[in-house]
Amino acid sequence: MKINLTVNGEKREVEVKPQTRLLDLLREDLDLTGTKEGCGKGECGACTVIMNNELVASCLVLAIQADQSEIITIEGLNCQDELHPIQKAFINKGAVQCGFCIPGMIMSSKQLLDENINPTEAEIKRGLSGNICRCTGYVKIIDAVKEAAHKMKSRGEDDD
């Protein structure tokens, strides 16, 4: 069957099977391989994307459920060559090792900061609790989210 959705601001029409997961649609049909599969069971967060302004594990969502939806993936975060402040912060703070969890981490961070630009450390931890990372021990990831919050806040204030 055919579904229509907006991915990273672009309208797409895709032919999918009833069992196709949103994750496969993104990775296989649209070749957006930035979104990763780590467990296929909603446990690791590597496949996290934003769907209609909410965080979802794309391995648990069927493609047909994404009909008419708006999806943002890691590839949609930086406009042209300008990195998103969260991406910049992950670089600055050295929050990346193997990088496999990072797209999911960044999407969770984005959702967190879009909802709450002043998160406490506990709120950051709650926001990232669905994403597991085997490499970093999370320390610098949390630092990065803090820095991104700070930057985004002052940018927002500049705009006013």
């Binding site: 590839e75 930086n78 670089i91 050295g94 990088g99």
Partner: peptide, 15 residues
């Protein structure tokens, strides 16, 4: 800064 970090934060790194 890591030399491979740009492609990792943008999702361009191919695994």
């Amino acid at each position: 800064k890591r030399v491979d970090v740009y492609e990792k934060v943008t999702g361009r790194a191919k695994y």
